[in-house]
């Protein structure tokens, strides 16, 4: 009853907390050409754990912004304009804060829960694994 597979169907969080689950979901998203949304989600979690006194943290914040938000990537398309503006202003003013990507991550997560996660649970790649 508490097998990894039963946990995968419980929630997106439990899927992403499992190594095999996260790997399989990532493979699915690569096929669907939206793997950037998952990488962004993990990047937000990694960023939140970084030390704000470390100069690397500022460089990572900029890298996340450039890679996922500044351009017209799939992540940028799923974010509200106000959310993108908020992050852009923080980057420009060098207001680097652990929570600066929280709202963006929530928006991406909600989108994944409603779309990609549901599709994953009925996908061939998932059913074959099961």
């Amino acid at each position: 009853p508490d097998s990894p597979l039963s946990r995968w169907t419980k929630s997106l969080h439990s899927l992403l907390g499992d190594q095999d689950g996260a790997f399989l979901f990532r493979t699915f998203l690569e096929r669907e050409k939206c793997v950037d949304t998952l990488d962004f989600w993990f990047a937000c979690n990694g960023f939140r754990q970084m030390d704000l006194k470390d100069t690397k943290t500022q460089r990572v914040a900029k890298a996340i912004y450039k890679r996922y938000i500044e351009n017209n990537s799939i992540v940028a398309k799923q974010l509200k304009p106000a959310t993108k503006t908020f992050i852009r202003d923080n980057i420009k003013k060098l207001h680097i804060d652990s929570a600066m990507f929280d709202q963006a991550q929530t928006e991406i997560q909600t989108n994944m829960e409603e779309n990609a996660y549901q599709m994953f649970l009925t996908s061939d790649i998932y059913l074959e694994y099961v």
């Binding site: 992403l16 907390g17 499992d18 190594q19 689950g21 996260a22 990488d39 993990f42 990047a43 937000c44 979690n45 990694g46 960023f47 754990q49 970084m50 690397k56 460089r59 990572v60 900029k62 890298a63 996340i64 450039k66 890679r67």
Partner: peptide, 20 residues
């Protein structure tokens, strides 16, 4: 010094689940 891409990759990897 690591490139921004390397730092970003490390950040992503650090947040991924580890083997149970």
């Amino acid at each position: 010094m690591d490139s921004e891409d390397d730092l970003l990759q490390k950040c992503i990897t650090s947040a991924m689940p580890r083997q149970r």
